[in-house]
Design a protein around this nucleic acid. Structure first.
Lengths: 196, 196
DNA sequence: AAATATAATTAACATTGTTAATTCTTGCAA
DNA sequence: TTGCAAGAATTAACAATGTTAATTATATTT
């Protein structure tokens, strides 16, 4: 890396970290160029020297949050037995993370991106990280229940869609109206998916 | 209804119909007060004499689109045998409707609403209409497979979340990248949910 | 130290939602 | 019929936003 590239990376880092702090605190809904710049201690126009537009910056944040979620899941499931038990624990860890940072959920699943290149990879990362993180556990389940690879995939998909859709319902619509009910319902749904 | 109320209802209707036309044509992303007013042949400020804000107007549209979807499902499933077969056909009808009107999907599932009163009912309507429309068919399946009411509910939930989450993935992220693949995957997923 | 290249800032523009001020209509009393 | 008051619709205006252009400050090179 040349000296200039190091400089550029450092500046990008300032803005990325500022944007991440802002999103964690305030959510993605009220993110603006001026807010992020303010958080970073720069003028709003400076962002455009380092990022094509705000969406690009925001999506870089998304890909960094993925790592964070993985780490939280690893922590929260450290004592769970691999397989079904760990998958259930991971689901809880997953929704609790997004409960804390609603803005990150919106960012990952509800934002749209028109451009290709960089973003295509980020999209793939978002779509697959939970499968990757739990791959080993699904394999254990598949062996236990003697599932073929298609059936295993169906089960993973059902798990993912249940987790994400009802999280969306709760975050966007307060359905169900209490967190206790939400967790109870989610646990039942996840267990239903797993019992095949 | 007094003469004034009739007038008011008529004006509301002009704006609602204009907004519905606009959303169908252009989606919800680019809806603006000025666009809707233009489509209705009025000035943008006139909207505020009849609706609290743009969101209120947009949500009235959502509740009217529900009826439309139900009708399309009824048409598309008219020749299907009640029960499993009709549920599979309805899923296809459902995703094809939203494929045609991506904006309506965004409106129904991705928009947030902070206010209570009117909107709470609209949210409930959105969340339940597909269950209501297919209630009879789920009952048939429950009888056939001898499911208790909790298991039946779990299955309905899994169906709904699969349908909506993967529709979201396709509409927002083009995953999978072709419509043919999308339909193939969805059919497999729906059938997987139903085989319990 | 002067000239040039680079980086950051302020100004500016277009587009939004929304409200205030103004103009236009319409129904009704004189 | 005419003038007036109430109501309805329009235009003007504001603040917030993303983004780009013009300007200023800083760093580098000769």
């Amino acid at each position: 890396m040349t000296k200039n590239e190091i400089q550029e990376q450092r500046m990008k880092r300032y803005f990325i970290d500022a944007a991440k702090r802002y999103i964690k605190g305030e959510g993605v809904k009220t993110v603006t160029a001026r807010n992020i710049a303010n958080e970073a201690g720069y003028s709003y126009a400076t962002i455009y020297n380092y990022f094509k537009d705000i969406k690009e910056l925001i999506f870089v944040c998304a890909s960094e949050f993925i790592q964070e979620i993985k780490e939280q899941i690893q922590l929260d499931t450290a004592k769970s037995e691999p397989g079904e038990q760990r998958i259930i624990a991971a689901a809880k860890s997953y929704w609790r993370y997004f409960m804390q940072y609603k803005g990150i959920f919106e960012l990952m699943f509800l934002e749209t991106i028109n451009e290709i290149s960089v973003n295509e990879n980020i999209c793939k990362a978002i779509d697959n990280f939970i499968d990757e993180e739990m791959e080993n556990d699904w394999e254990i389940i598949a062996k236990e229940k003697d599932l073929n690879s298609d059936t295993k995939k169906m089960m993973m998909d059902a798990y993912k869609s249940t987790l994400n859709f009802y999280l969306l319902m709760y975050l966007n619509r307060r359905i169900p109206s209490s967190f206790t009910d939400f967790e109870k319902d989610m646990n039942l749904r996840i267990k239903f998916i797993l019992e095949k």
